[in-house]
Design a protein around this nucleic acid. Sequence first.
RNA 1: GGCGCCGUGGCCAAGUGGUAAGGCAGAGGACUGCAAAUCCUUUAUCCCCGGUUCGAAUCCGGGCGGCGCCUCCA
Length: 493
Amino acid sequence: MGLRLHNTLTRRLEPFEPADPDRVGIYGCGPTIYGHAHIGNFRTFLFYDLLHRYLEWKGYGLHFVMNFTDVDDKTIGAAREAELTIAEYTEPFAEAILAEADALGMRRFDLYPRATAYVDRMIELVAALLEKGLAYTTADGSVFFDISAFPDYGKLSGKDLDQGRTGERVADDEYEKDDARDFALWKGVKPEDEEVGAAWDAPWGRGRPGWHLECSVMGMVEVGETLDLHLGGEDLIFPHHEGEIAQSEGATGKPFARIWLHVKHLRVEGEKMSKSLGNFITVRQLLDEGVSPAAIRHQLLSAQYRRELNFSRAGLEASEKAVTRLLDFRDRVARALDDSPGEEEGAATPPVPPLVAAARNARSAFEEAMDDDLNVSGGLGALFTFVSRGNSRLDEDAPLDPREGRAALELLDSLDQVLGVMELGSQARTVHDDELEAWVEDRIQARSEARKDRDWARADAIREELADRGIVLEDGADGTRWKRVGAAVGDRG
RNA sequence: GGCGCCGUGGCCAAGUGGUAAGGCAGAGGACUGCAAAUCCUUUAUCCCCGGUUCGAAUCCGGGCGGCGCCUCCA
């Protein structure tokens, strides 16, 4: 069984069959960069990252593109207020988002195109649609897509356009168009557009591209006329992706994407995240508070992308603990492997040791879950089941067979190529501060002496002192070990 | 009004026909000077009512409850 994905277009699970497995073309709708990205954006982007990592893990070669939308109404409005051009205004946000993506352990995609760099190609596409009679111009220099000329319009979102309230909310749109449901390919210039450098010349008049047009063009130019996968948040199904289909397929006559994936919106503490509720949380805020990136990543990835996910402080704490359990286990295996006896030359090959078999099972259970529409909860379950088995095995008296230690580490590292939580967590654990490290070692030495003298009060005081600095001690048969624990969650003073 | 999703232990969450993975939290125990980590034990009428079936959390019907989208918010 290979990977199967839920295609919004057919509303069914479909086998993933890219045209060229060595170059799978993927386009994900990225953020509009008029402000800082919030954690909802990052649920979507982390899903892209999970997909990216999983497909690479499965051996596919990818060409993965995520755009930055750097021109739209809000961007123009914000740039005007800041008295900057849209280019000046947006670029810092693009950089901030990439920095946050890095902080959350996202691997870089192949390309992050900015819409404004593709205006020439957008004009070409509009010209083609006008040529084909799928679009019309208006007196103010705008161009609209004529949905009545494109029978497939509505196929992605499943809308019956002759019914319901579709179009109701835009009946008073300031642009004149034949049908309220027609959407803008090109918006005739307004004075405020010129102020911020958001206007370009086109054969039918000066103006700026419509939102849907941008993604159609970046997708087709950078990935191809038919994408293997097109990704986005669930809110984009209509009208954004419906519009992209109309424009792209209207122009090329080819399917724009084989499979459409849509990520469900995140909730925050049980509520919809919105500015009016005042519960907008940015990744930047969380990081500044000292919340561990691994906990954020774990929580945002912990539910399957089409399931409801509620982001909460309590959940962050649970995630922090879960990642800690993984890291502790990995460290424990690594130590046990160091201590395990070397291979005996010429020894008869014993049967498969228990942990080797468990690792094998875990790997296949993980892959089976992930193949089922990226069921990451099931995948994490497989990983943690292995951790329990491994800890039990390490508690046994029988020394660890080196093959077991290696199989366990290989498994952990392999699954983390996909999950990326241990790599983030272990970064946070690594102390880069020689001075601190020396101090900790010194304190541990002092405590050991106190313990030797059975001066428990002093020993405990030292342990407390270390705990205040985020250092946790573990006394073992072979001495005292220490580790740095993740930043406190929700502890804002 | 249209289209769609969801309802599993204290919290989060897999499982879509053969009597319930996993994480967090709680209780008891082992280990420890005490801890930490780890292990063991322990906590589920799977929203309700019908139906199909030898058998349903899983399929069908009807309720109840929560949620999303319906023109520019990932």
